[in-house]
């Protein structure tokens, strides 16, 4: 039983990363109509910025939690202003190719300077250790990752679904021309949306640094699964991305316990099944 609970926890943690990343992808796709293949590289950059802050500036994990998303978010804003904005109105394929190229360049540069092996990042003192729950041993840092991710996801959901700013965002997703004709600076909103999505990816990177090591290809490995999660959940819905992210993490964890051989493929098998039955994804609006 211990092993089952342990795998459940691993599943929840992976689910946290899936949720944070697919949420950002969904928001970016909605506003920019771009399938952001650079998302994994930006997640990796979040972890590296946390590492740099600690190594070179002595700024600890808690600072990194705020600064890394801001710094990588600014990098994303730069990408959007200099490159992505010119793709408005073009076929999805262009955005996909451009962001895929950006991902390769960024990952290549990091590999060149830091190699492919992982750099260690210590768990912050406050979150070291664990609690024995009786039925399992719960490492505090891992519990923190799950709870904190959930809070961030729900805060993002609230921002988009329940505030005036979110109403602008949803409306601009449907009809940017009209929203702009009401007096809202839509191009600025698009830029900030990309920054927000990228910031969420970087935040996931920081959370991941103490668990998985800081590696140039950490995002490349993860993002493939995240895209499967997005396909299963559908691009249309914020809450859908969150729930699908966590649920698939858990399903993966359970598979690792009950049938380990399938644990690496279960998400993709589910993807195929969902595509067969409901091509727009479980929560997606019809395209």
């Amino acid at each position: 039983m211990q092993a089952l609970y342990a795998q459940l926890l691993v599943g929840l943690i992976n689910g946290s990363f899936y949720a944070l990343l697919s949420l950002g992808l969904a928001v970016i796709f909605g506003m920019l109509n771009i399938i952001n293949f650079a998302h994994g590289a930006l997640y990796m950059m979040g972890a590296f910025v946390a590492y740099f802050l600690l190594q070179y500036s002595g700024l600890n994990y808690w600072w990194a939690l705020i600064l890394a998303p801001a710094i990588v978010g600014l990098f994303g804003i730069l990408l959007e202003r200099t490159m992505l904005q010119w793709l408005t109105g073009l076929d999805h394929l262009y955005g996909l190719l451009l962001t895929f190229g950006i991902a390769l360049i960024v990952q290549g540069l990091f590999q060149n300077y830091f190699g492919s092996s992982g750099l260690p990042y210590a768990i912050p003192d406050l979150l070291k250790g664990g609690v024995n729950l009786g039925f399992m041993y719960l490492p505090i840092y891992r519990a923190w990752v799950v709870v904190f991710s959930l809070v961030v996801c729900l805060a993002t959901w609230y921002l988009i679904e329940k505030t005036q700013l979110g109403a602008y965002l949803r409306a601009a997703t449907e009809n940017p021309t009209l929203v702009r004709a009401f007096g809202i600076n839509v191009p600025l909103m698009i830029t900030l949306t990309y920054g927000l999505g990228v910031g969420l990816a970087a935040l996931a990177g920081v959370l991941s640094a103490p668990i998985n090591q800081v590696r140039p290809l950490m995002g490349a490995d993860l993002i493939i699964v995240v895209f499967a999660v997005v396909v299963i959940g559908g691009m249309g819905s914020i809450m859908g991305s969150i729930i699908t992210g966590f649920a698939l993490g858990v399903i993966e964890g359970l598979t690792k316990y009950f049938y380990p051989e399938a644990s690496n493929t279960v998400v993709f098998v589910l993807m195929v099944l969902v595509l067969l039955v409901k091509p727009q994804g479980l929560t997606g609006r019809a395209a």
Partner: peptide
């Protein structure tokens, strides 16, 4: 167009442009 709107020009398009992902209150307050 956003600057033109800020000058005090308001436009109601032929297709009405009611947003499906917004409820009536949100549409009204948009």
């Amino acid at each position: 167009s956003d600057k033109i709107a800020r000058l005090g020009v308001a436009f109601c398009p032929e297709e009405r442009g009611i947003f499906a992902s917004l409820d009536v209150r949100e549409n009204l307050m948009l």
